[in-house]
Design a protein around this nucleic acid. Structure first.
Lengths: 217, 217
DNA sequence: TAGATTGTTAATCGATTAACAATC
DNA sequence: TAGATTGTTAATCGATTAACAATC
């Protein structure tokens, strides 16, 4: 009896709900409405309700969804569990910020190693971890069962860093650089850049102005 | 004669194509195929071709799209232009990394001011800018015609920082913190966090394993 | 010529929207 | 009870997919 695949769109939306829910829980919220959940994940509230009602009786009319409850159910539905290790490449300002941000606290990810190309940084401690040599990536990725890599390096170094990680067996890349990284089939890239979204915001802003202008004439 | 509104989905996709194209141009690529454009923006290549062919004759069969050409056309279609100023809140590791990354170079955005709550950081120079007091946000946002704010502060300080910026007149927020920021209608928030995407990647990874397991039995 | 890739069609599927009864 | 919000329906719209002729 194999788990049934979810439609891709649904699974992607559930993952976004989960992110919002986990943060709402950190904020101490007990319940959240479909509207609030939708606003924070840029998804229509009717869509949120239908997605969730199709998977169980999670909501309470007049109240909303229990944050703690939903935060427990969605990972089960998505089948995500365990601790997944990340290698962070780049121990500059960005890498240091990521390592110290606690951004992965309480998720199924944790930073398990930090690497840098600069000899001056090797051996420095960032939190609990010591910055390691790039030449040790392959060995440490294997030893520590690392499946993901975070690229916190300059754009010019991103592809090289990605190649090193992929050769070592990493299958998920978190790309904090603005470079377009090429990867072979089977490797997933998660870009982290606000630019595309900002261009759309700028379009919306311009459209709003146009509408106001034409309305006021 | 007012500009016609584009369907929301199309405008959002064009914004993402534009981001990829601008980076491809930085990388020195002369042409790009609908498939490559789609892969880097997580959009189906047929959808890319239909979006673009509906707006003009941009492609060349057997070759692809001219990067320089398309990079010029899409901003016109979206009606985005000018220089839009950003206030960066937070001059720690993350803020320093953002300010020094050149991430907005060549876009329609530029960082025009940096603020921090820590008195020890006031007056420090980061690139061309001097770190300013939070109490000066309102004045400087007005003086420098700042429309967007980047939140590079700890999660616990994010809502307060957002409120200060919104009160000063900012209408776009780039949220580098993992906090859920509440904003009034008319203010747009651009979250910058890989977590939701990573959860989805993890689901895909698990599904792929399940498929392999069930296939191999 | 051969290979690659666009432009476009047709069919299916999924998302969006409005509306509202059910119920907490 | 009154207010809020879910669960659900129906109608429309947009996205996805496969396929392939056109053409660079």
């Amino acid at each position: 009896m194999t788990e049934r695949m979810l439609p891709a769109g649904l699974a992607a939306r559930l993952a976004r709900y989960l992110q919002v829910l986990m943060q709402a829980r950190k904020d101490g919220r007990a319940t959240i409405s479909s509207q609030a959940l939708g606003e924070h994940s840029a998804i229509n509230s009717t869509q949120v309700r239908r997605d969730l009602s199709g998977l169980g009786r999670f909501g309470k009319r007049g109240v909303g969804y229990d944050v703690e409850d939903l935060t427990g159910h969605i990972p089960e539905i998505l089948g995500i569990r365990g601790q997944n290790n990340i290698a962070l490449l780049g121990a500059g300002n960005l890498g240091t910020a990521i390592a110290g941000s606690g951004i992965f606290d309480g998720t199924w990810f944790q930073i398990a190693a930090i690497f840098d190309a600069d000899p001056a940084r090797i051996g420095q401690r960032i939190g609990e971890l010591e910055v390691q040599r790039l030449s040790d990536v392959a060995r440490i990725v294997t030893e520590r069962n690392i499946i993901a890599g975070a690229l916190a390096v300059p754009a010019t170094a991103a592809q090289g860093a990605a190649d090193v990680l992929i050769d070592a067996g990493v299958v998920i890349l978190i790309n904090y650089s603005e470079a377009l990284v090429q990867v072979p089939p089977g490797v997933m890239v998660q870009p982290v850049s606000p630019a595309g979204g900002l261009f759309y915001n700028l379009y919306l802003l311009g459209s709003a102005f146009s509408l106001r202008s034409s309305n006021s004439q």
